[in-house]
């Protein structure tokens, strides 16, 4: 009954789409964040949602639908009415879950319409404060020489730190001992406490620990050095080429949303990303909002497609799946 009802509603939504678009939005919009409240993605979403609400003249409320690496929330949006009142803000996990989960309840590339990219949060390769290697080159040599001894922490399968770690190990062609945690909090605790050696995580989680001297930073995964961490070299400077990884975030709508509504949302997102408050808070997080050219449906679609292709071989080579 659910399915047929939903289908009827969907058909109705498509037929009346253009008429509705003129008055859109006429009620509260729900933005689903597929992670729990308080995390970095939630924070990004709340900042963007607040700025977009101001522009659209309708409140955007955040609904945290956590679970299964973000796939539960994404699945909810995939099945929602494509009326523009249910949106999804998801990060890089949107592309990796396509490979990490062999039985996804939705088709990643065909279940959504795209609104635009939001931001690309850089990553940092960090270690416990008293870890021996002095710089990135020394770290790679040390890791290769002591591959049985070096431990790498991650925040669970599919987490940013897990992806970055897989990429790092495949780049240096050395498998390290991986120590998985449930979430960034406990992983960071053990890194600060010196129980594990290495981690690679978003600046959101690492910048302040680095500045406070609690952990040691080896490199950023960006093209250029970060304004927030001017003393930390890029991975390329340390001899690790093609190691640009970022936790990119995008806004999606269910497939079949009318193009007018998508255009309206895209324009609103672009405005929101220029909001001084958003720019400032993003800078505090160690990241910058996506450019106007990136905050478009085309750019997000291209990003998602290329990222799925990029991660599939890395994940398959590591042989780790989340289901």
């Amino acid at each position: 009954m659910f399915k047929s009802l939903a289908a009827a509603v969907a058909a109705f939504g498509v037929l009346t789409g253009s008429a509705v678009a003129e008055t859109y939005p006429s009620r509260v919009i729900t933005m689903i964040v597929p992670f729990s409240a308080g995390g970095p993605t939630d924070t990004v979403s709340r900042l963007v949602a607040e700025a977009m609400s101001k522009d659209l003249g309708q409140q955007i409320v955040i609904e945290n639908v956590g679970g299964a690496g973000g796939t539960l929330g994404a699945g909810r949006v995939a099945k929602a009415d494509p009326d523009g009142y249910t949106l999804l803000l998801h990060h890089i996990g949107m592309s990796t879950s396509a490979t990490l989960y062999r039985k996804l309840p939705y088709d990643t590339l065909n279940a959504f319409d795209y609104v635009g990219l939001v931001t690309d949060v850089p990553m940092t390769i960090v270690a416990r404060a008293n870890f021996e290697p002095a710089d990135m080159k020394a770290l790679v040599e040390y890791a290769k020489a002591n591959k049985d001894k070096v431990t790498y922490a991650n925040a669970g399968i599919g987490a940013a730190s897990h992806l970055c770690g897989m990429l790092f190990m495949s780049k240096i062609e050395t498998p390290l001992t991986t120590v998985p945690y449930k979430g960034t909090g406990p992983a960071m605790t053990d890194l600060v406490g010196g129980q594990v050696d290495l981690m690679c995580d978003q600046t959101t989680n690492t910048t302040n620990q680095i500045k406070g001297g609690k952990i040691k930073a080896y490199a950023t995964t960006t093209k250029e050095r970060l304004a927030a961490l001017p003393n930390v070299p890029t991975a390329a400077e340390g001899g690790l080429t093609d190691f640009e990884v970022g936790i990119w975030h995008g806004v999606y709508a269910p497939k079949g949303t009318s193009p007018e509504i998508i255009a309206k949302l895209s324009a609103s997102l672009q405005k929101a990303l220029k909001d001084p408050n958003v720019v400032k808070r993003f800078a505090d997080l160690g990241t910058v909002p996506s450019s106007e050219a990136d905050a478009t449906p085309e750019a997000l679609k291209a990003k998602l497609t290329s990222e799925i292709a990029r991660w599939a071989p890395v994940i398959k080579a590591a042989g780790v799946y989340a289901d």
Binding site: P40, T43, R46, L47, T204, T207, N208, Q209, K211, G212, G213, K214, K280, R281, D284, L285
Partner: peptide, 11 residues
């Protein structure tokens, strides 16, 4: 704290 613009951390 982050939404308020405070960076939680050792500092």
């Amino acid at each position: 704290m982050i939404i308020q613009g405070i960076q939680p951390g050792p500092n």
